[in-house]
Design a protein around this nucleic acid. Sequence first.
DNA 1: AAAAAAC
Length: 634
Amino acid sequence: MQSAWTEPAAQLVAEPGNTNSTVSAATQAGSGRSSYVPPHLRNKPKAVAPIDNYVSVAARSNGLGDSRDNLGSAGPADLPTTSAGAWGSRSSASTGMPSTGAWSAGRFSAGGGNKVVSGGSDGWQSNRTSSRLNGKSTWGVGTDVDPFPAEEPSTGVFDQENTGINFDAYEDIPVETSGENVPPPVSTFAEIDLGQILNENIRRCKYVKPTPVQRHAIPISLSGRDLMACAQTGSGKTAAFCFPIIAGIMRSSPPGRPRGGRKAFPLALILSPTRELSSQIHDEAKKFSFQTGIRVVVTYGGAPVHNQLRDLERGVEILVATPGRLVDLLERGRISLSAIRYLALDEADRMLDMGFEPQMRKIVEQMDMPPAGQRQTMLFSATFPREIQRLASDFLGNYIFLAVGRVGSSTDLIAQKIEYVLDADKRSMLMDLIHAQKALGTSNQHQLTLVFVETKRGADALEDWLSRMGFPATSIHGDRTQSEREQALRSFRSGQTPILVATDVAARGLDIPHVAHVVNFDLPNDIDDYVHRIGRTGRAGNTGLATALFNEKDLSLARPLAELMQEAHQEVPGWLMNFASRANFGGGGRNRRSGGGPRFGGRDFRKESGRGGGDRYSGGGYGHANAVGSSAWD
DNA sequence: AAAAAAC
């Protein structure tokens, strides 16, 4: 029934009858926040009982397995636990790194200071550093070099702080799993045998304790199961799918030689919807793969293909990509997917929506990738609309659905404000907001403001206006060149231009530390997009502010927005409630609810599809969810 | 209607 994670010994026994479980961490932990003791400090001596399925499987693998004493000894003692003072100590200390041209960066060269988009995977962990490219090297004292030179260990590599993580904020979030024989969650990394080298990298990264999504998703993935996971970005998704992939590759076969020839045969494929996000995932995966011999390569459009081809020729085990360039390289015959054993889709609901679905079907179903069942497929997103879940099941075998309550988004951690503003008054309102934000900022930390607009034109226009008004602003959107995009991101991260005007290209997944304020200058049409946008602040358990400018044009968003804000214990102005009730009668539109409403990141659509076959959505049993004239047809 | 994603 429930899957407790309090007692490792108990939880490691598989429960054959376990098909559904809805659990609350708070209930399970049975401990209030005041008395909270991090799991890694609880049963420290005997951290791992050797009765774990996964342990035994891995232990007989290839000698990489026995990590127990490793983690035990390396463990908590020498790791800083949650320390307060989030940003303070790492604020400035620019080491004026030689700024290479945008393109020389990262993924094209094995060494060298690079990484256009660095930062952390999903923010949760300690990787909340500023971009190394912008000169704010926070990797260690005076470390400007690539954190992952091909072979040589760099002492500064992992010397970042594990700060700013509000663990308590993660202790009472609800978790829901469904599917057959759900492997029980773990409480500590020590309980999972990820292999010695990976454990060492985890230690270097100073990840003291798995996040909720990691606690659940990693055991599931390690057991070989397909997975659909709903968890807010900022909760450690990237590591959740990277660790099992890396561990799986290492335990099955030593990282292979390049197979000669020009065609690459990756073993794992990680897809994401934007170039910057793929770049960020690549950076993370490289850290986790440090000294494993596993080669991580990223390919995406807008960048010279030559360098990417060269990287591929050198061999690749884990390929990170955006769909367009991948299709291109597949058609050129430079990549084969026949060896794929792991497929991970980040922001999976976006990857499967109308814009991406044809490409996704081509990659997954029409090239040479092994079919579902013969590969392991993992889908991750903060939002999972029902119709997308239905579509996604085409890509999955008998999968487990996992939903972890939204963290860092529609929680108390993000203060959500909403202002009624006519279009004509939006700019002056924005100016007021920026001034107010500036007043809040302290001298030694930058206060970044991320402004979302609806169109690329609008982004250009607003950037231009802000600049003319004397505000240090830049912009990122799909009409800018890739080097301009990355330059803009660097400039924003570094605080050089603390205002970034963005389209939805920046809405998902990007981990940008210090974003204090997200302004929805234009609101999106879809509440899920709103969720992703405001998730750019309040990351890793820190607080953030999100302000939305609302007017009649946003009528269709009124109701889902009001519901979301209520769920997040935000004050909902009366006028918005009025709009919401108006929208109820036809103003509505295409606001598909993420299955299950905001309380959970989502809900397994398999539980609700009790109706006739082929239905586009199952309206029944959803309470308010479908109230907004939700034609699932969009 | 818009945005993203190959050349």
